[in-house]
């Protein structure tokens, strides 16, 4: 009886078919190869790592205690940092709405306008805020205007991409109903589509604002205003006790803005 069962059923079971196994090993080999190439090509001097913990401890020691007398000096730059994030986000919202309609497949005019919209999206999103800052400092000179422009330039693509996706997923029914009233194309977008994507627009805006506060904290490194300038200056003067004060201030502002953003987004949905 038992021998009969063994003959009818296979005694070997493998989780993956031979082909799956090969594919898995190929992936693993590719990852291993790329990792080895990356690490070796970077010419890492492992000697540095031997006393890294000593150096880090030394740095931490020089930071303590924080020089609280520096705090009043950085209040204005901190507020400027938040202003840069807020105004930059606000400008980005205004431009992102037409850009979103331009780059959504169902609302763009034709293939060419769609490609233009997508091109702007990719360019805006691929270039980091700080690099945008570099560019705008060359245009507007150092200061918060360059920072605002940088934040807006990076955020417009971020917002427009998510809103365009929402437009593409908008319910066809109401759009059809508004079309059937004889409304113009602009009215169909305004009454039929915009209310549908409003929650996405508000949610992403608040979320992006919170990211932008964090981004604005380093715009000063390239001269685009905000607290980053003071951090950079303090580091270059080796004023480590000042650096700690600035870091604590950034920590507080970023965590507070994250909390505000989470609270607002929680209330929307």
């Amino acid at each position: 009886m038992s021998t009969g069962a063994a003959q009818r059923h296979p005694e070997v079971w493998r989780r993956h078919s031979p082909r799956e196994t090969v594919v898995r090993w190929l992936w693993i080999a590719a990852v291993a190869f790329v990792s080895a190439w990356s690490v070796s090509a970077l010419d890492i001097e492992w000697i540095f790592f031997k006393d890294a913990h000593v150096q880090a401890a030394d740095l931490a020691g020089r930071m303590w205690p924080p020089r609280w007398s520096y705090a009043p000096t950085i209040i204005a730059p901190l507020i400027e940092t938040i202003h840069i994030a807020t105004l930059g986000t606000a400008i980005a919202v205004i431009f992102s709405i037409p850009l979103a309609f331009l780059s959504a497949r169902n609302t763009t005019a034709n293939g060419f306008t769609w490609a233009v919209g997508r091109g702007i999206l990719v360019a805006s999103r691929s270039v980091n805020t700080v690099i945008w800052g570099l560019l705008f400092v060359a245009i507007f000179g150092p200061g918060p205007i360059a920072g605002i422009a940088a934040v807006a330039a990076r955020s417009v693509g971020f917002l427009a991409k998510l809103v365009a996706e929402a437009i593409e997923e908008a319910d066809r029914g109401p759009i059809e109903a508004i079309e059937s009233t004889g409304a113009s194309t602009g009215q169909v977008y305004l009454i039929g589509i915009l209310p549908q994507v409003m929650p996405v627009l508000i949610g992403t805006t608040v979320y992006r604002w919170d990211i932008n506060v964090r981004e604005s904290s380093v715009l000063g490194f390239v001269g685009a205003g905000g607290i980053g300038l003071h951090l950079y200056a303090s580091i270059n003067q080796f004023a480590w006790q000042q650096v700690l004060v600035v870091l604590l201030a950034i920590l507080a502002v970023v965590i507070a803005s994250e909390a505000v953003s989470a609270w607002i987004r929680g209330r929307i949905s």
Partner: peptide, 17 residues
């Protein structure tokens, strides 16, 4: 189209208005 009114199965109201 302004002279033709249309009524839908799924009502097709704009929900958030």
């Amino acid at each position: 189209r302004r002279r033709i009114g249309m009524i839908f199965q799924e009502f097709n109201l704009v929900d958030r208005l």
